[in-house]
Amino acid sequence: MSLPITAYVSILHRISGIVLLGGIILLLWMLDTSLSSEQGFNELKETLSSPLMIIIVWGLLAGLAYHTIAGIRHLLMDIGIGETLEGGRLGAKIVALLAVLAILAIGVFLIW
């Protein structure tokens, strides 16, 4: 099948949603650990400094960023914006562009 860009934006929205389903639990657990005690905070800080953890957290935040941006497009379509063929394609391109920028920015922030 050759699919239009709107279809790729849609399937990525779903995939990022599934990633977040598990990822949110991990992020909440990290928040809980960091708030539980000073020792917990330090241990978590130690764990998160490894390159593997940075990549995992980057992946989760990338999913969150993409899901949020694509979700806003859904809300706009629900009020009738971007429902035409051209509008849908333009919206999908804007989502892809904004997501790439957001994911790069998150990456830069994490590595810094």
Partner: peptide, 19 residues
């Protein structure tokens, strides 16, 4: 319907089911 718009992109009559 999740607004995938495959329907709009293939319709031979140029119709818009998504809308």
């Amino acid at each position: 319907c999740h607004g995938i718009q495959n329907c709009v992109s293939v319709c031979p009559k140029g119709l818009n089911p998504t809308r």
